[in-house]
Design a protein around this nucleic acid. Sequence first.
DNA 1: CTGAAAGCGCTTACAG
DNA 2: CTGAAAGCGCTTACAG
Lengths: 350, 350
Amino acid sequence: MTKETTGTDTAAPIQKKRKVTVVEVAEAAGVSVSAVSRAFNPDASISRPLREKVFKAAASLNYKPNRLARGIKSRSSLVGILMTDFNNPFYLPILSRFTTEIQKRNCHSLLIHVDGDMDIQEAVELVMEYNVDGLIITSASLPQELVDACHSQNTPAVIFGRDSSENSVTVVSCDNVLAGNMAADMLLDAGYTKPAFVAGPIGTSATIDRQRGFISRLMERGCNQWQVVEGGEFSYDAGYDATLRIFQHTEKPDALFYADDIMACGGMDALRYELGLSVPEDIGVVGVDDIRLAKSRSYNLSTIRQPNEQMIQSTIDALFEHIADPHLPPQSITLPCEAVVRGSTQKTRT
Amino acid sequence: MTKETTGTDTAAPIQKKRKVTVVEVAEAAGVSVSAVSRAFNPDASISRPLREKVFKAAASLNYKPNRLARGIKSRSSLVGILMTDFNNPFYLPILSRFTTEIQKRNCHSLLIHVDGDMDIQEAVELVMEYNVDGLIITSASLPQELVDACHSQNTPAVIFGRDSSENSVTVVSCDNVLAGNMAADMLLDAGYTKPAFVAGPIGTSATIDRQRGFISRLMERGCNQWQVVEGGEFSYDAGYDATLRIFQHTEKPDALFYADDIMACGGMDALRYELGLSVPEDIGVVGVDDIRLAKSRSYNLSTIRQPNEQMIQSTIDALFEHIADPHLPPQSITLPCEAVVRGSTQKTRT
DNA sequence: CTGAAAGCGCTTACAG
DNA sequence: CTGAAAGCGCTTACAG
């Protein structure tokens, strides 16, 4: 019934709730605006009594500093998060942890979705328009242009990647070559002899490294009947389709190492429901990531687990260290991964 | 080798790359700063030739407006996204679409993770410190305090919820009572006679509505042997555990309606691998959401699909309409959902 | 349509 | 440690 009170001629213009400013707090506390500003700045030189006086006045007026106005001369308290892989469920908990950690440090997250259309250089520049204090880049692929873009702005940036061997910007990743080694060992140890690698997105360093580690270990151990198959994106469907394609070949593998768990799940469903094969009896399967589904009874997937928690923590720590001291040289942090043996490779040795 | 150039006594302080400002652009273009400002403001009154002159100078200097400085008097171009359900994969694509749509409109997303520790009032106030132009709240639960918090600030806000029947703030949701009706029909039509509802998080309006719709339809159709079980959070594990609990009762159901697909997946695994039951022969299963996994061969889950794309689009449209015209009255948009019949309810009628 | 000037809310040398 | 004043980069009445 009160629905139409707006829209009449007499409607008062909606006024943004007047925000309390430093000036008003200063008046209420009987101090200068400088004092108010300092009170809200953790490492400004101000006496304890003065700060408390300011706080009291601020609280009574319900004053909140305007972060935008602050950011113009000082820190914005904004951390940019650039993400590309919004279709991989792997990244939701990671995003969750990032925002939580950023908020703990009294900063906030500017989330930028970098998709195909928008080039990365552009995205990085854009985020700079907000004067972000730092930048986290989460991307399975790590194009050089991205690294350059970070470097050209001199804003602290850390790449939460799956890559390493970059030295002009800080990157934290896990050892993907090692992951490949482990996958090879798991399969060979279980008695499989003709493994294939199902690759992820082309140009993705993680995929490349995993493949390298996988193949080199196979060869080291005298296994020469391997093959590599294009996979496509990190997705259930990509794993499914790639698997069907493999079995049109004349050389059929007896084990599959997927670049990713979600691909492995798609692949297992294709194996079982389309191709009528049993896992692990007819064919062994290994993935990477240890997503929640991997340990479900439906998949029971052997996988290589990345030290997620540590990677996240290192990323955040490194970022804030660099924000605190911009002189710090970039570092490259590579963490080890861990093999998780489950049912999908539990073939009894023949 | 150049690694240690920093850190010596002579190290020049790292200077933030000097940003080009309006003043410099104005000089280069031979116009006033007002002109520069107007050129970058879509609906300012400025002649085409002047604007072009400014753009040319700006481009040659690689000028980008400082959004923080702009936001202090005008729009911040920031849209706050408040999220609580970071453990449900359902929300990743939604978040993806939100940020994409926001970016299309030349705005950016301030992502706030609202977790248990932090109360919502606080989160809303916080986001206001950034002068956000608008606010999207994504939450399965919709506590009154949240609605109040939005209302008290007068910033356009829309709740992407699973709720309705709120009229002081705009909310878009799907018809969860209808979802419950549909689930009841699917199960009854397939010949099941003793269904149970596995609830989601307590106090979540979506769960409550689904349950209401489910039960009322069952009773309408003369089915009185139903029961309701507490589920817990929307997660694989919660569905798994709840299912095991149900079967300790004396009254065993022959069909289960889970508040959520991810719970249903956990539940199906418990049924099949822990309880030795066949789906759909021994027991029918229905979920809600139609997540990617639902149509996988491993689950082949009947479900109720929400009109996600439309809900997202409506949310964004409503938000930007309200930003453009703050006088618009809040609206409540409820969209219909759709039944997706798959294998998990394909029991032949007995 | 255009420009000169005041102002947004906060920070930071500069004196004391 | 504290305050008066200048300044951050942009916007917006106010005149013309």
